[in-house]
Design a protein around this nucleic acid. Structure first.
Lengths: 127, 127, 127, 127
DNA sequence: GTGGTCTAGACCACA
DNA sequence: GTGGTCTAGACCACG
């Protein structure tokens, strides 16, 4: 999996990293129960500090995306059951996103098409 | 227009303010070419520092949501022509949002329904 | 409020600190909405690193014990409503504690007396 | 006796194992002077490293819960005489637990009821 | 060899 | 002046 960090960005490194891993999980590039690279490996590979990677892993663990097995390191969490109730934060963020899209001149059908296109990339399976 | 800030939130005040104004524009609560309160008025009304409001206005201007006329203060930008090409940032944010939704167990149809629901809320206020 | 850390202990510093602050809140030594010392102050006072204190504050914030206001630093959270449903972890920890007490030869009435004694120290108020 | 370990838990394996054995002793599931399985047996049964089990036994011995006889292996210690003086660690842990409960909004009567409930569960298994 | 903890010191974002 | 982020490098706990 390819990860690219922008050092000049205003979003912190640990958050950029977290986001890319989350997307990796959703697209299936990182399969459920797949082992993630060790903190040190990833830190060296990305040219950043181990503690930054460590923080990312801690957050991903807290948010339930990964699981840390003391014997084998970090693994992707097994998939969740279907949950039809979206979290309030998700709704809030989506509302803001739709507001911005609307002002940009993107109407509903265009937006829904964009969603479909992104969903097509996500091959996440609930096996 | 009612603006409520959470002083204890993780998102900075200037960003909360920016987001609420963006939503206000999208819903039509703030009409195109409508005059916004002055920095000082808004700061006092919200009980926050003028520099914070100033930063918000600067960002909104940079992002094209408002125009600042030295003589008449800040105004909401005129509406954009229909633009079928979404900005890269929008796509990126939407991708992350959809990734998180997918992992939460929300499937495409459920997500699209949520979008429709939010669009309906906006259009309703609009008219 | 007096805080004493044991550097030789096997419980990490940030956890010792977290525990003592929690007890401080419960006893009322730290009142609701009271301002906590800044990260730097506390770090210097205790002779430890700022990041250690920072980690403690982050955890306390995540667990809802404190709230971080960007303008004024960290504050004790306002008191919770009465909640008669104990968390599963609390039950689990209490079960282990009671098991150990039982093996030590402490019977139920003695244990309950000990609880009463500790409760007497807690002057926490739901104002 | 059934022992279930969570490999992904924050609490180390040797500690999980130690806790479950302590509870087993308190409930009477493991009777005084009962022989425990050998380190190798238990390790194989649980699918973990022998060093982990070894560490658990060492700790249990240090804390007086078991005695290790080189000829006959590990046995549960004989019951203690009634000892009305709780250990300082116990008090400390209980204080922290009660502090957390208090802040959660659980009052004394509710907490005492919870204690009674747990004592009842233990005594029930005991008899 | 893994992640967890801690340090000393630096710079930045926020208000 | 506050907390947030990041670094380089060290040591420890766990298995």
């Amino acid at each position: 999996m390819i990860i690219s960090l922008q050092l000049e960005s205003d979003t912190p490194l640990y958050e950029q990293l977290r986001n890319q891993i989350v997307i990796g999980i959703a697209t299936g590039e990182l399969a459920p129960n797949e082992k993630l690279p060790t903190v040190r490996q990833l830190a060296e590979e990305l040219g950043i500090n181990t503690m930054t990677v460590n923080k990312t892993y801690t957050i991903l663990k807290q948010q339930g995306y990964i699981v840390i097995d003391r014997r084998h390191g970090a693994k992707v969490s097994p998939p969740k059951e279907d949950n039809p109730a979206p979290s309030p934060q998700l709704e809030e963020q989506l509302e803001l996103l739709i507001a911005q899209a609307t002002i940009q001149g993107i109407d509903q059908s265009r937006f829904q098409a964009l969603c479909s296109q992104i969903f097509a990339k996500m091959t996440y399976r609930h096996s």
